[in-house]
Amino acid sequence: MPSNQIIKNKKAYYQHLAEASQYSLNITNWIIFFCHLILSVQLDTKDLVQFTLKKARFWTQYSDLLSPRQTKVIKRLFEAGKEGFVGGISAKKYMIIADCSKATATRDLALLVELGCLYQLEGGGRNTRYDLAI
């Protein structure tokens, strides 16, 4: 995780490192930057732990209620991580992931909403999209 934060902030990291490597003994800016970096890592880790706990609670609550097809789709949604499935899942995406007909996808999505596994995002009709209700 820390290396991911360094990669995200590579330019600032190397800039602060270069400044701290100069002939001055004042490394205050480097220490401040590094503390912010560590705090950012801790917050990301906290979010990841919370997501993992929500995921575990979800499977405890719903695993026995889902068909293999629904389980496959929900697993794919969880694979997207804490950021979620970009744009939510539509019937079309469901059809592709589950390899099923549009009618089956629509029925499955409606059941998943009814069970409380998914919630409907803004919009409706052909563009109805859903996301995990965690």
Rank of each mutant, 00 (worst) to 15 (best):
L132A: 04
K72Y: 10
I6L: 10
S101N: 09
A18Y: 15
K92Q: 13
H36V: 07
N9G: 00
E79K: 10
V73F: 06
L118A: 01
W30M: 12
F85C: 01
F51Y: 13
E114F: 11
V49S: 09
Q61W: 01
N4Q: 06
K93G: 06
Y119G: 03
T52I: 12
S21G: 13
K75C: 06
Q120K: 13
A56M: 09
N4E: 07
Q120N: 04
I7Y: 10
Q70T: 08
R69N: 09
V49N: 11
F85I: 02
C35K: 15
D47R: 14
E83K: 13
I27P: 01
V113I: 08
L37H: 01
L111T: 09
D108N: 11
I31H: 11
T128N: 00
L77F: 06
L65R: 13
I134A: 03
I96P: 00
G123N: 02
I134C: 08
Y94S: 06
I97D: 05
R57N: 04
R107S: 12
D64N: 08
L48I: 04
I134M: 14
Q15V: 04
Q15P: 00
M95V: 02
K82W: 01
M1D: 08
F78G: 01
Q70G: 08
N26H: 15
Y13A: 02
G87S: 08
A20I: 02
F33R: 02
E19A: 15
I89W: 01
C100I: 13
W30E: 10
V86T: 11
E19W: 13
S40W: 03
S24D: 12
S40E: 15
L77D: 04
N29W: 07
Q22G: 14
Q15R: 11
K102D: 07
P68T: 04
S63R: 15
S101T: 15
I6Y: 07
I97V: 13
S67P: 03
A80F: 04
K46F: 07
A105C: 07
I74W: 05
A105V: 08
V41H: 07
K93P: 00
V49R: 12
F78Y: 13
K46E: 05
T60P: 00
K55T: 12
F51Q: 01
N29M: 10
T52R: 14
E114C: 07
C100A: 14
Q15E: 12
A103Y: 10
N4M: 05
I74T: 09
S3E: 08
Y130P: 03
I38H: 06
L66C: 01
K8R: 11
Q61M: 07
Y130K: 02
R126F: 15
T60F: 10
P68W: 07
T104Y: 00
N127Q: 03
L66W: 03
S24P: 02
S3A: 10
T104P: 00
N26E: 14
K54S: 12
M1Y: 10
I6Q: 05
K55H: 12
